[in-house]
Amino acid sequence: MTLKEKEKSWKEISIAAVCWKPSTEFLTGDWKTYKPVRDPAKCTRCLLCVIFCPDGAIHWKADRNDIEFDYNYCKGCGVCANECPVKAIEMKLE
């Protein structure tokens, strides 16, 4: 089997194939069908969505005292919308 030009041979990959790139470079945002949209007026900033998000795609911005969705990683599972105690998050078809 010949290697394609961009593929590396075993001599060039990292020792023991240790992973060396942070996964944050791999965007999983294009997986989603539904997109969470938040109503900032309803939101009480309880941060439950930040805690429960399996993808860590909701960030707490202390300087702005607000949360922010990172659609680059959001897979659209809807856990945030389901757990939101005031139902401020709605899942909308992307």
Binding site: P22, S23, T24, E25, F26, L27, T28, W31, K32, P54, D55, G56, A57, D70, N72, Y73, K75, G76, C77, G78, V79
Partner: peptide
């Protein structure tokens, strides 16, 4: 445990 892992959507 950073974003960008390839777990299914809704993975507890």
């Amino acid at each position: 445990f950073m974003s960008g892992h390839r777990a299914c959507a809704g993975c507890a």
